[in-house]
Design a protein around this nucleic acid. Sequence first.
DNA 1: TATCCTTTGTCAACACTTTGTCACACATTC
DNA 2: GAATGTGTGACAAAGTGTTGACAAAGGATA
Lengths: 226, 226
Amino acid sequence: MTQLVLVVEDDDMIRELIEIYLNKNGYEVITAADGEEAMEKFTLYSPCLVLLDLMLPKASGEDVCQWIREQERNEVSLIMITAKTSSDQKIKGLKMGADDYVTKPFSPNELMARVEAVLRRGGQFCQKINHRGLVIKPRKGEVLLNGRKIQLTKYEFNLLFYFMENPNLVLTREQLVQQIHPYAESDILDRTIDAHIKKLREKIESVPSKPARIVTVRGMGYQFVP
Amino acid sequence: MTQLVLVVEDDDMIRELIEIYLNKNGYEVITAADGEEAMEKFTLYSPCLVLLDLMLPKASGEDVCQWIREQERNEVSLIMITAKTSSDQKIKGLKMGADDYVTKPFSPNELMARVEAVLRRGGQFCQKINHRGLVIKPRKGEVLLNGRKIQLTKYEFNLLFYFMENPNLVLTREQLVQQIHPYAESDILDRTIDAHIKKLREKIESVPSKPARIVTVRGMGYQFVP
DNA sequence: TATCCTTTGTCAACACTTTGTCACACATTC
DNA sequence: GAATGTGTGACAAAGTGTTGACAAAGGATA
């Protein structure tokens, strides 16, 4: 069962690069270079995943994204590709209905990892991840704790999303930094991550000083336990 | 690294046949004849793959399948075996979380091919290594002894991982130091390794003073015997 | 078997590393 | 420009690692 991916990207180089990598990883690929073509190809082929650049000729990525979601095709997953620009673009993207986002420039490996993750989550069911009363809705940028909505900052949201995508895995601080600053070889300190974790814990743990959800694994990193 | 397969099948003939074939192909096999035994053996041994007959005494294959998925989602592959042949059943099985499906009667070669395929697919990342009731899950930073989780420090964990990756090899103290401090020409003393080994033994040996897993090879180093 | 020498086991003190927490400066958003 | 979010360094607290001294065990020799 090979999976079909639609790549919407106006830059020929990048589009072909993505195509090559997707092929190498066993996906079938169709491409579109602008918004109109994207919508055509989408109706024609019904891909299970769309990689969508936000900056497009003819119809903006936002339009395409919204259009896709209007098709009531919740069975399609969507990963946005955004330029570096403002960092809260990401949240906007997720709110618009993307399942994940990648910022340019990205490494092909990072992109592939996200593709795998999104598809593993199972496309049609990925509107929310739910672990023990903690619900995150990537497409809405919303987090519920025991039914009550809680307010997270961008980075807290990103971290939590990443944790909930990878439950039970030990995530190193390095990985977490990557998640927060996907571009640039950032020299973010470990303490920064710790600080974010602390704030996250205050919001999602019932006893923040005895964390039960985000536990620290000494010498290794942190781990989300459902 | 030999892989551990749990075969759950109530028909003795078929179970033994499968076992023989798996052994011939280099797998280690444990078996269960009913649903309850299957769950027991599963927690005890954490196999990499389960071959599961759907028609079982005591707890149906469906129940066991679901239960297994609740325990470990991504760390174990699952192939269903059934007499039922409707393709509708097959879909159900796959939805329930099986990675593949075999209908009786099947040829042993077909089964082996599917086993290989499923393990190849699921095993890119080393999810766990299993030796005689001792299971290490590198990505989760977890160690199970007879199904019970035990707590190791970073270096203990690294050492044990290295040992379990290289069973039956005599590892010199020098190699072990390398493993603990991969960079930097550290001038760690032998006694340091011994100390770590002692602590490890206290945690994983049933009689720490008579170690059966990590044995010392006088004048050479230590050896992990499965 | 008694003796000697080498290797390994054990332990607790101490040094060191890792993590939690905080206040503050800087950045961003509205 | 007020409010909020984010990164940083300092310090405290907790947890681990290393070491050296000594005991015990194993091997060799005669």
